[in-house]
């Protein structure tokens, strides 16, 4: 069982201006988890994409709710838990991005979720009545 060295939690306003602060919060935790620069960037990108999805899709726009962000610095890596109170979604129903399509046909749908899945080792998502939508992103220390 992995040991948890440190847990920190912050609540951010659901707006794009919060993204930089969120990424800094993640970078700090990733450094404590002894991630290399490539893994720090990967975790920042995954969390940024997840938070954008919360703002755009769960809340349907900026300033409509909060993003609760918890980081667990563990002996085996970093676990980030994001909670929102917006509309839930089924990750299985999001179509994969159109990789390989000609430029004029390519559309943005599905890229964010695809990036999240590629950047972390494990992604879990579930909706709990009374608690909200919970996304857990775990990346192993290399």
């Amino acid at each position: 069982m992995a040991k948890v060295f440190k847990t920190a939690r912050r609540v951010f306003a659901g707006r794009y201006e919060s993204l930089n602060e969120i990424r800094e919060f993640i970078a700090e935790a990733a450094q404590e988890a002894q991630f290399d620069s490539q893994s720090i960037y990967a975790m920042q990108l995954a969390v940024d994409e997840a938070c954008c999805n919360i703002i755009d899709h769960a809340y349907g726009g900026e300033d409509r709710g909060w993003i609760d962000c918890q980081v667990d610095v563990r002996s085996d890596g970093l676990l980030v838990t994001l909670i929102d109170q917006g509309k839930s979604f089924d990750p299985e129903q999001v179509p994969p991005p159109q990789i390989g399509k000609p430029l004029k046909e390519v559309k943005p749908r599905g890229v964010g979720l695809y990036l999240i899945k590629k950047m972390v080792d494990k992604m879990e998502y579930h909706s709990v009545a009374g608690q909200g939508n919970v996304m857990r992103l775990f990346k192993r220390k290399r």
Partner: peptide, 20 residues
Amino acid sequence: DFISSKGWWVLINTQKKCKR
């Protein structure tokens, strides 16, 4: 030092426009 998918879409949409 950071580009999210939103950033890439700005570049891709501009690329579509320029290459037309």
